[in-house]
Write a protein that binds this DNA or RNA. Structure first.
Lengths: 366, 366
DNA sequence: TCCAAGAGTGTATGCGCATACATTGCCGTT
DNA sequence: AACGGCAATGTATGCGCATACACTCTTGGA
C-alpha cells in the first residue's frame, strides 16, 4: 500500500500530459489508438485507480445515489473485534430447535427487496448506490451527510423529518418512496394500497359471500396503513356496510401483534367469518393464533394479509394476500431520479405501481 | 435548487474565514462558542451541505466503505420509465395462486443479511456504506471504480477476479468475506463450515445411527461447498467409512436443483436413510421431491441443509440445518476493516465465526 | 503549392474543502 | 512596562481530476 499513483504519475510514465490521461479514461475515442494503449499500459503497470473524490469535485457530480431507510430500532451490540479475534469459543454448538415458533424477520424483507431493485437499476445506469439506515434523532444529520456525497437521494417514507427533507431538496433531487403524503411536492413512488385492499375486500364480500369481517390495522402513523384502511372502508361503504361496526384491532405490523389480535378475536363472543389484516406479518400472527386454537382456516374463518412477503407463501395454510412489487418500487425510484437529473425543471411526478391480489388457501377451498 | 452554497458563502455570511467554518463543522471545540453559533446560524440559513467530494479530496479519506457482491445473473429488464409514468394499466389484478409451488428467493437472503450487518456496523463507526453487485465481465471495472471512492473494500468470495483483487489491494484495504482461500493474504471473515458440517454428520451417524447417507453438493467452484464437503468427509473417515462410496449429487445451490437431486435418489434402487445437503435451498428441494413422492421425513429419510435461512424454518417438516451468523459476518468484516484502517501494518487477520447446528423435525422425531 | 479545417495533444485553471502555518489579541508574570 | 504563552482566527496551499482553450501537425482541396 505505497502512495497511490495519480494522473500525474501515469502521465509521466506514459510520456503524455494529464489531460490525455484523463481523456483516455473518460472519452477514449478522442485519443489516438496508439496513445491510448500507451496510457492504458501505464495505468495497468502503476495500478492506477482514479480518485472518486477528485473526480466528483472536478466534474461536479459524484456518480452515486443515496438510499435512506428508516431504522431498525433494536440494535443490540455485538462484542468488539478483540473478542472475535481472540475468541476461543467452540466453532459450533448444537441447538435443539424442535417445535420452535416460527417468527420471521420483521419488516426487513421489504427493505431488502426495495434495496435490491434500486441497486440493480442504479448499476444499469452507471450509478453507485450508497445506503444508510436512519437512527432516530440523528436522522437529519445522517441524511445531510449523505446528501453531500451523492447526486440524488431516495428516501423511504417517514425516515427523515419533513423539515430536514425540504432543506435537502433545495440542494439535491429527492425521490420519496411509499408515501402518498408527499405527492406533489416531490417525485414519488407508491403502490396501489387503496385499490388492492379494495379489491381484496370486494372479493371477500362478493365472491366468498362474507359480511362478518374483522380488520387488523397497523400503526396510526403509517401512510400505507391509512391507504389500506381507506380501501377497505370504501369497499364496505359501496356495499352499504358500516365500517364503524367492523371489529378493529390495531397492531404493530409484527407477527406477535397479529397473534395478540387473533387471541383477542378468539376471546370475543363470536369469531368473524373473515379477518382482513393490514400486512402479512400480522396475518401470519392471526393464523398462528387460530391454528393453535384449532380453528380451521379458511373453512371457519378466512384470513388475508398484505405485502406478499415470502413467509406468507410458506405458511399453512398459505396466506391470501396482496403482493406489492417491492423490487419494482426500488427500480422505479431510480428511474424517476434519472429523469429528475436529466431535467431538473420537470414537474414532480408520481409513479403508482399496480399490486396483485394473490388468492391462496387461507381464503379459498384447498 | 439554486446554486449550492459553499464554505465561502457561509464564511461571508457569518463574517469569518473559511477555516473557521470548516473548524466549526469538524472540530467545534476549537472555536469560541459565540463564533460557533454565528456560523451555525449561517449554515442553517443558507442550507449549507458540505461537499463530500471536496472533503474527501482534502482529507484524503472519503468516510465510506464499499461492499462488493457477486451478481445475480438473471436480470430481466423492466419497462422504461415512460411506460411506468404513462401506464394506464389497471392498478391491481387477481392471481389464482392456489397450489403454487413454493420457490423462495435464491441466494439473496444470504447477501441481504450480510449487508444488513455491514450497514449496521459501518454506521456505528461513522462510515457510509456503498454497495455494488458484480456483473460478469465488468466486475473488475466496477470494483476499480468503487475502490476509487471508498476507504476500504469488503469483497465477497468469488465476486472479483483474484488478479484484480491484488491490484486493488495495493491501493486500499481489502477484507474478503466467506472465502477460506484467501486467508493469509487478506483480512478475512469466514464461518466454521467445516466444523459445522462435521458436527452435523457426526450427529447423523452417531446419534441417529444412520450410515446409509447421500450427499447433495453445490458447485465445484464454491469454497463454502468445498469446506462443507471436507467436514462431511472427515466425519466419515474418522468412523472408518468410505466417502468415495457415498452417493453424491451436485447441484447449483438452488431449490430446483435440490428437487432434481431428490428425484434422482428416488429413481435409484434404494433410498438412503439420510440426505445431507450442502445448503438449505437444495435441502428444501429434496424435501419437495420426497414429500411429493409420499416419502415420510424423517421416519424414512432424514434430510439436512446448511445456512439457516428463514425458509428452512418454515418448511414442513422444518429443516435441520447449520446456521451461519450471516449478519455477524457483515459486522465482523467492518470491524476487521476498522482495525486495518487504524493500523495499516497489522498482520492480516482472519475471523472464523461459530455456527449453530439447529436440530429440527427433518432429522428428529416430531 | 498554399491554406483551411480538423484531429490530436498540451496548458492552465478551478472544483470545495482541510489544514499547516502565520497572525492577532489577551492574560498573567516578572 | 515589557514579554512569553496560549487561545482564537486568518492566510495560503494543495488534494487529484475534468475541461475550456490554445496550440501543433496533418490532410485534402483549390
Amino acid at each position: 500500500m505505497t502512495k497511490a499513483p495519480t494522473v500525474y504519475d501515469v502521465a509521466a510514465d506514459a510520456g503524455v500530459s494529464i489531460a490525455t490521461v484523463s481523456r483516455v479514461l473518460r472519452r477514449p475515442e478522442d485519443v489516438r489508438a496508439s496513445t491510448r494503449e500507451r496510457v492504458m499500459d501505464s495505468v495497468r503497470d502503476l495500478g492506477y485507480v482514479p480518485s472518486g473524490s477528485a473526480r466528483g469535485l472536478a466534474a461536479r457530480r459524484t456518480g452515486a445515489l443515496g438510499l435512506y431507510f428508516p431504522g431498525f430500532d433494536a440494535m443490540d451490540d455485538m462484542g468488539e473485534l478483540s473478542d472475535l479475534l481472540a475468541d476461543a469459543s467452540p466453532s459450533y454448538s448444537f441447538v435443539d430447535d424442535v417445535g420452535a415458533a416460527p417468527e420471521s424477520h420483521q419488516f426487513n424483507l421489504y427493505f431488502d427487496e426495495v434495496l435490491r431493485g434500486a441497486e440493480l437499476e442504479a448499476w444499469r445506469r452507471g450509478f453507485a448506490l450508497t445506503v444508510a439506515v436512519g437512527r432516530g434523532g440523528l436522522a437529519a444529520d445522517a441524511a445531510r451527510d449523505m446528501a453531500g456525497r451523492v447526486d440524488g437521494l431516495l428516501v423511504l417514507a417517514q425516515s427523515v423529518p419533513d423539515a430536514a427533507l425540504e432543506q435537502l431538496a433545495r440542494r439535491i433531487p429527492i425521490v420519496v418512496l411509499a408515501s402518498a403524503a408527499h405527492s406533489g411536492a416531490f417525485d414519488s413512488v407508491t403502490v396501489s394500497n387503496h385499490e388492492g385492499m379494495h379489491a381484496l375486500t370486494a372479493h371477500v364480500i362478493d365472491d366468498l359471500g362474507i359480511r362478518d369481517i374483522a380488520y387488523v390495522a397497523g400503526p396510526l402513523d403509517s401512510p400505507d396503513d391509512n391507504d389500506r384502511w381507506a380501501g377497505f372502508e370504501s369497499a364496505l361503504l359501496e356495499r352499504g356496510m358500516d365500517p364503524g361496526r367492523v371489529r378493529l384491532r390495531r397492531g404493530e405490523f409484527t407477527r406477535a401483534s397479529g397473534r395478540l389480535a387473533g387471541a383477542y378475536l378468539l376471546a370475543s363472543d363470536a369469531m368473524p367469518k373473515a379477518v382482513i389484516c393490514a400486512n402479512d406479518q400480522m396475518g401470519l400472527g392471526v393464523l398462528d393464533a387460530l391454528n393453535e386454537a384449532g380453528i380451521r382456516v379458511p373453512q371457519e374463518v378466512v384470513v388475508t394479509g398484505f405485502d406478499g412477503i415470502e413467509a406468507a407463501n410458506l405458511s399453512s395454510p398459505r396466506l391470501t394476500t396482496v403482493h406489492q412489487p417491492m423490487e419494482l418500487v426500488g427500480r422505479a425510484a431510480i428511474q424517476l431520479m434519472q429523469r429528475r437529473l436529466d431535467d431538473p425543471e420537470a414537474e414532480p411526478a408520481s409513479i403508482r405501481l399496480p399490486v396483485k391480489v394473490l388468492l391462496r388457501e387461507s381464503s379459498e377451498g384447498s
